[in-house]
Amino acid sequence: MPHGRRDNRRLPGGRRRRRGGRPYRRLYPRRRRLDVVGHRRRPQAAGLGVGAIEVFVLGGEADDLPRIQAWLARTPVTPAVLSAIGRFGHAGAWAFLVHHLAEEVLSDAAASALEALFGERVPAAERKLPRAWRAAIAAARLDLDVRYRRGEPWRPEVVVAEWADGALPRHEIAARADELLARIRAGTPVELDGWTPSPEAQLESLAATKCPMAW
């Protein structure tokens, strides 16, 4: 990623991604959906806009990181983009997120994205300090072949637990509900803004679902 391109396969502490891991199952045919985001010559890429990053959150895989890098190279970084990078779940995104802690208008979003990816590994008073995150990530012994959420391997129950304390804004909850529906291939949307008085039962059902995807 910009400002962290050399870190694709390396975490703080020098550990490299192991090669030859098991193949990942595909939710979308790559040529039809994901390649259009990271390819300059495809006209569909321009039409996807800032929301293109959500395609990767919904159905991307570990080896889509270079495509995200290509997309980011020509896309303004916003709080929504940082949120999606954190939710994508690739530990190799750490350098990109830590870099944006230094930007005043993006520091809070970058810290929240780091927490979504790695969990609350630094004290609240240090959540915007790059050195604190570098040290915490180096000590975590993370695996670049694992998709993470809150510092744990991605599972539906971990995603649902993110909003259990009521701290997440509604749009962040909605993004996670969409992610769950896509990843577990459920057909019924969760109505957060409709007439349903409480979506808790639906969300608890999603949390109990076994996700069929390896990443």
Rank of each mutant, 00 (worst) to 15 (best):
G4Q: 08
L11A: 00
R16M: 13
G21Y: 01
R22Q: 14
L27A: 12
P29M: 03
P29W: 02
L34P: 02
V36Q: 07
V37A: 13
R41Q: 11
R41T: 15
P43Q: 06
G51I: 01
I53K: 00
V57W: 00
E61H: 10
A62M: 09
D63F: 08
L65C: 04
P66I: 07
A73E: 14
A73T: 07
T75D: 00
P79T: 07
A80P: 02
V81N: 00
L82F: 01
S83L: 11
I85V: 15
F88H: 13
A91R: 01
G92T: 01
A93H: 15
V98S: 02
V98R: 07
L101C: 07
A102L: 12
E104K: 12
E115P: 01
A116V: 04
F118A: 13
F118L: 08
G119P: 05
E120C: 10
R121C: 09
V122C: 05
V122S: 03
L129M: 09
R131D: 13
A132K: 05
R134D: 11
A135T: 09
A135S: 13
D143S: 05
D143G: 04
R149K: 08
G151M: 06
E152Q: 13
E157S: 14
A161F: 03
W163N: 09
G166E: 04
A167R: 15
R170V: 12
R170K: 10
H171N: 08
E172S: 11
D178V: 09
D178N: 08
E179Y: 05
L181V: 15
A182K: 08
R185A: 13
L192V: 03
P197H: 06
P199C: 05
E200K: 14
A201F: 09
L206C: 04
K210C: 13
C211Q: 09
A214K: 11
A214N: 10
A214M: 06
W215A: 12
